[in-house]
Write a protein that binds this DNA or RNA. Structure first.
Lengths: 206, 206, 206, 206
DNA sequence: CATGAATGAGTATTCATTCAT
DNA sequence: GATGAATGAATACTCATTCAT
């Protein structure tokens, strides 16, 4: 609200939406979805309450926009990898790396998303609408399905031994998340990728 | 509410507290911590709102009491196992089983607890107080520390190959949780225990 | 909040709800439904915001309770009159009087209700829910239907000349409302009843 | 928005204002004053929000302009009729017809206007400013005054029997509105005019 | 003149907690 | 000890209006 007096400059014009998204990212990441208040977001974005509702229909849609924006590149990269002609083992490692990279960037946002989307009982624990929750659950499911597809391919080609691919896919996914959330990532990501792959491939036995 | 007129009997007095805990278990499990309301709990417990606050200082402490009560037996069993003279491999499998059994019983309650305690950013995502969150994180940490101890013992005795025991302990824990939350548990738990152990020990390579 | 320090006396206990209803009557009558704010109601009722929501599920239901309470006696009296064995002309006058009396008491409340329920275009102009609007429209319809029934009876018995009873019933109703809203009511209601009846029965021609 | 680039041509300039008025008519009629939003009006008018405020000082004045525009012809016709040399009975019927025609055209707009202007308590129920409300109440008053004048003339000439002309004028007006709002109008308006006149003149007695 | 991004005052509703009886 | 009426802080969202371009 300082520079161009009322922020109508073309720079700022585009920036308002960005300011809000940036502030929202910040607040959602720190506070989680429910405890993030629109008031705090606008304070940080240095904007009026109405402005938020000009760009986003409601708090939920603001959050979803954030998720969409940050998740898009990953979705594309994953699709590319899946459809590539790599060998199972190579694909396997590449997917691990992709997921790792995705979750390392914007770690806090994904943490919050997963927090909201995770483990539902009969009712909806989440503060997000049932609809939204299901949408993102499907998103995660899709990733896991792809992991499973790679595992199956490996089993078919006898690179991996027979297993319950569904179980292993979920476990692999949870292992990756654990590594990220516990901040077990090495500076050189390749090392972490290697460690995870090694663990999953060979286990811990001598 | 008839016999002893206002619940002055020791039976009823104790039972009031139990009724509340039972109802709280039910509601927390179904709704999660945040969406569980004291109103719903007292409706189910068939008691007055004030009564809850006679036995428990607040909603959070009610939840914590529940967690304490249901977690106690496990903590004891775990300690016993750790200090037992079993061989590393046996200990390893027994711990997997212990954790599995714990989380299968009261699955929803643990789901909720983990939901609240999981991966915090700088601020506290949770609806629980920072203090409480840390307490339960320590609780989980303690379990994981014990798992790690077993792993170390195995490495020392060359039953397991050298590894980052911390990482593996966390991963093992997350794998177990995943199996439970995804309801991948076989009717015969031993099978699941075997599968997890096999996966962690030998990986997926042929 | 003065007398018994915190208003928990049995007198006051019952009175809280009444205080709120009284205040709501006041504010709704003066401001209309939309412009009446819960804040103003609680200020007048000298109560907390939560208290209102203990007794009434929302602003609309508070308003409806008011309408119900004040309208009940009339509905009963009307039903009695309709089913009575009076001659058409007597019934006719008695109904006029009943409606007049109803609308004179609580004139402002009915004014507001009619304001909300009146003349809808395609959409719902009202601030009340569609459901509620229809409920009260039905209520008014019911009154008019009864008026019409009396007219029909009169026509059958050749006391009244043939007419479109529906049109006349509506017109009679609107005439009564007009008299009330314009405060054309004489101190002795009988005079007003007589005037209306005379006008409707004989018209204005010499 | 193409030809004269920014609407500088007198054609377009005038048309912008007309577009807005047309759209406003539409939205006000469908939604009522309160629920009509400027946003919806500009969407329909295919214009910018600022433009509305170039031509009209605010939402209220936009509404008033609309009312003015549509009411003008009627006011003139009414004045003509009043000052004409017709016999009381003819004048009486002509006025009924005039009012009927006025309210049939733009029925929804008048419905909305009356909705806002009707029966005020101590405070202003309306969403319009007290000032505006009074202005239009005066407008209606003026019509009624004219009706009353005709009635008085009839009484003086002994065509009508003695009566409270004020009361009857109001009642006649409310009867006409009722016929319009209940859509009791026959295809041939003359029939409705005749019915109303007959009812008011002769009443319903045999 | 036309535009539309920015604004913020105004409001209904929820729910944990208290405390007099 | 048991009760439940009373409470109010906290929060998302709407929409008329302004003003720099």
């Amino acid at each position: 609200m300082n520079q161009t007096q009322a922020g109508h400059g073309t720079d700022e014009a585009k920036s308002k939406r960005q300011q809000i998204l940036k502030a929202a990212y910040d607040v959602f990441s720190r506070k989680g979805y429910y405890r993030a208040t629109v008031d705090e977001i606008i304070a940080l974005a240095d904007t009026g309450k109405g402005t938020v509702y000009n760009y986003f229909t409601n708090k939920e849609q603001l959050f979803c926009t954030l998720v969409q924006e940050r998740g898009e590149p990953f979705a594309i990269a994953l699709a590319d990898t899946i459809s590539s002609e790599l060998l199972p083992m190579e694909k396997f490692k590449k997917i691990i790396k992709l997921i790792l990279v995705l979750y390392i960037e914007d770690a806090d946002l994904w943490r919050v998303l997963i927090h909201e989307v995770r483990g539902l009982g009969e009712d909806n624990h989440s503060n997000l609408s049932q609809e939204t929750v299901m949408k993102y659950q499907d998103g995660f499911q899709h990733i896991i399905d792809n992991v499973e597809a790679v595992l199956k391919e490996g089993v078919d080609k006898a690179v991996f031994r027979p297993m319950n691919t569904t179980h292993v896919a979920y476990c692999l996914f949870s292992i990756i998340l654990t590594m990220v959330y516990q901040k077990f990532i090495e500076d050189d990501i390749e090392i972490t990728v290697h460690n995870i792959a090694e663990f999953v491939l060979r286990g811990i036995t001598t």
